[in-house]
C-alpha cells in the first residue's frame, strides 16, 4: 500500500485570517508495535495532489487546497510504501498561530486503504481521550501512543 502525507504552512487574510502549519508522519502496526513508515519528500503537484490534499485535511482541519491558495503557502508531499497488511496510524502535529493553539490529530487507515477513524480540530474530544481511543482501536499499549504524541508536542 502506498502512503501519502503532507506538510503545509499557510498565511492568508482572505476571506478570513488563517495562519496554520501542520506536518504528518505515518506508523504501521507490526507485532502490536507502531513502527514509523519511511517516506521520501517531493514537490506538490496541484493537478495530481489536490484531491489527496483535500481528502487528508478536509476532515482534520476543515481546510482545503483552495484555502491555501488564497494566501502565501508551502505544501510538501511525503510518500512511502508498506508491504505489511495492517492498519496505518497517521499523526499530524499542528500550530494555529491565530488562536495560539497547537496539538496533535490522528487518522487510522485500514488495510484496504479505507478511512477507519479521523479526528477533527473543532469537534474532537481532549487529547487524553483520543490517545485511549487510538490505543484501543489498534490494540497497542496506550503508553506507546503517548510517547509518539510527546515527541510531536515537544517539536511544536
Amino acid at each position: 500500500m502506498s502512503i501519502k502525507l503532507f506538510s503545509f504552512n499557510v498565511d492568508t487574510e482572505d476571506p478570513r485570517t488563517i495562519k496554520l502549519e501542520a506536518s504528518g508522519s505515518a506508523y504501521i502496526l507490526k507485532n502490536r508495535e507502531l513502527v514509523p513508515v519511511p517516506t521520501t519528500k517531493r514537490e506538490f503537484n496541484e493537478e495530481q495532489d489536490i484531491f489527496d490534499f483535500d481528502a487528508e485535511f478536509g476532515d482534520l482541519f476543515n481546510i482545503s487546497f483552495n484555502d491555501l491558495i488564497h494566501g502565501e503557502y508551502i505544501i510538501e508531499v511525503y510518500e512511502g510504501d508498506v508491504q505489511a497488511s495492517s492498519p496505518i496510524l497517521k499523526v499530524y502535529a499542528y500550530k494555529d498561530r491565530v488562536k495560539g493553539k497547537s496539538g496533535v490529530l490522528f487518522k487510522i487507515i485500514g488495510e484496504d486503504g479505507a478511512l477507519i477513524y479521523t479526528d477533527n480540530m473543532y469537534f474532537s474530544p481532549p487529547l487524553q481521550d483520543r490517545i485511549g481511543r487510538i490505543a484501543r482501536a489498534l490494540g497497542v499499549d496506550r503508553k506507546h501512543v503517548e510517547s509518539i504524541v510527546q515527541k510531536y508536542m515537544q517539536a511544536i
Binding site: 489536490i50 484531491f51 483535500d54 481528502a55 476532515d59 482545503s64 487546497f65 483552495n66
Partner: peptide, 9 residues
C-alpha cells in the same frame, strides 16, 4: 456528511 471525500470542490 452525506458523501465521502472523492473529488475536488
Amino acid at each position: 456528511t452525506h458523501v465521502p471525500l472523492v473529488a475536488p470542490c
